[in-house]
Structures are given as structure tokens and as C-alpha cells.
Amino acid sequence: MTDEKNKPEAETSAEPAETLAEELSEEPAAQGEAQDPAQNSAMSGPDIAAIQAENADLRDRLLRAAAEMENTRKRAEREKQDAARYANAGFARDMLEVSDNLRRALATLKADEREAADDSVKAMAEGVEMTERQLAAVLERHGIKEITPKPGERFDPNHHEAMFEVPGTEHPTGSVVHVLEAGYKIGDRLLRAARVGVAKNEDGAQNGGKVDTTA
């Protein structure tokens, strides 16, 4: 009888033990639930970094596009200025022939012949000179400048064209000794090189060496 009376007590004491075991088994789950926000925060870290990287990439692309647009604008402006500056280059090149003919006409009349000529010839020569000077002034006003090297000046292949060589001169080899036709520039561009004769001495190595006619 005693055992039967104690049996319910044993069962009753076992129930708290089972309840405690269940609570202990549930604690890790509860702890895992408590860690979820931290895990979510850790998982959200790479997402923020990716957004920041994408933002930096978009900003870099925007800056590059703005720089490219500015370069395009400057290039278009420069091309516009060049077009306005050099638009009359072809016309100016043709007018150089007129200037050359005026100078040739004056060169045919020597100084002593002009002095002995009658008044009509002198007046005509003065008219040609006036026309040649006026044409030169008009060309210069439109940005066209004359290139006329002086005797003894070093030959420059960027602005001069060697037509012949002159041996036995007092000038160093490779220097200009005679100008056949003046050269011209428009802005920074060469319209026509000055056509010249250059010195060539026997001791060229001591007086400047071989003339360089390559641009």
C-alpha cells in the first residue's frame, strides 16, 4: 500500500523534470532568435557596400561624361574659330599671284631706266607701286603676313623652299643669299614658303655644314 501511495508522488516529481528539460532544449532556439537581428545586420553590410560602390561608379561616369562634353564644346569652338580664320586661305593664296606679278612688273624697270623715262612711265610705275603696297596692306589686315628672309639668315625648311645653291659666297653654308619670291602665312599656317637660294661653300663643314631642306 505504501508503494502505491508514493507512486503518484514520483510521477508528480517527474513532471517538473520533464518541463525543465523542455525549457533547456528551447533555450538554444531562443538564443538563436535573439541572434537573428545581428545576423540580419551582418547580412545587410555587403548590400550597403554594394550600393556605395554603385554610387561611386555612377558618380565617376557622370564626371567623365561632363568632362567629355566640355572637351567636345571646346573642340567645336576651336574648329569654329579656325574655320573663320582660315576660310579665305584659298582666296588669299590666289591673290599672292597678283602681288607677285605687280612686283615682277616693277622689277622689269631698272632704276636708271626709270630715272630716264618720261613722266607717263614714272606715273605708271608709281601707280603699280601704290597698288602693290595697298594689296600688301589688305593681306596683312586679314591676318596674312609676309615671310621675307634676310641675306645670311639661316635656312628654315618650315618656312623656306630652296630653289638653288650658290657656291663661293661670304655667307655660311645653309644660309639664305637670295630671295626669289616672298613667303606668306595666314595665322599659324603656311600659305606659301619663301623661295630662296642658299649658300654652298667648299668648306661647308666649317661654315654650317650641309643645308637641311626637309621640313
Rank of each mutant, 00 (worst) to 15 (best):
L109A: 05
G90V: 14
L63H: 07
I144P: 00
D156K: 02
G152N: 05
R141L: 03
L109R: 13
A66C: 00
E129Y: 09
N71P: 12
E132Y: 09
A107W: 02
I144W: 01
E113I: 02
L102Q: 03
E140A: 10
E97G: 08
K150G: 02
D94T: 06
E79R: 11
V121Q: 07
V121F: 06
E115D: 14
L96I: 10
S120E: 07
R73E: 15
M95D: 02
E153Q: 11
A83C: 11
A107R: 15
E153G: 04
D112W: 01
A125D: 09
E132S: 12
E79W: 11
A116L: 10
A84Y: 14
I144E: 02
A111P: 07
Q81S: 15
A83Q: 07
K110L: 03
R154E: 04
S99G: 13
F91N: 03
L106Y: 05
R141F: 05
A67D: 11
E115P: 06
M69D: 15
D60Q: 04
V98L: 13
S44E: 01
A66Y: 00
A65T: 15
H142A: 07
A83P: 08
E153V: 00
R133P: 06
K150E: 10
D118F: 06
A84G: 00
I147C: 09
I144M: 03
D112E: 10
E126I: 05
M43K: 12
E132I: 01
A117C: 13
D118V: 02
I48Q: 02
P157F: 03
R78K: 14
D60M: 04
L139N: 04
V138D: 05
G127S: 07
F155R: 04
N158K: 15
L135G: 10
L106H: 03
V98H: 09
E70D: 14
N71F: 14
T108Q: 13
D119A: 15
N158A: 12
M130D: 08
K74G: 14
E68I: 09
E126S: 15
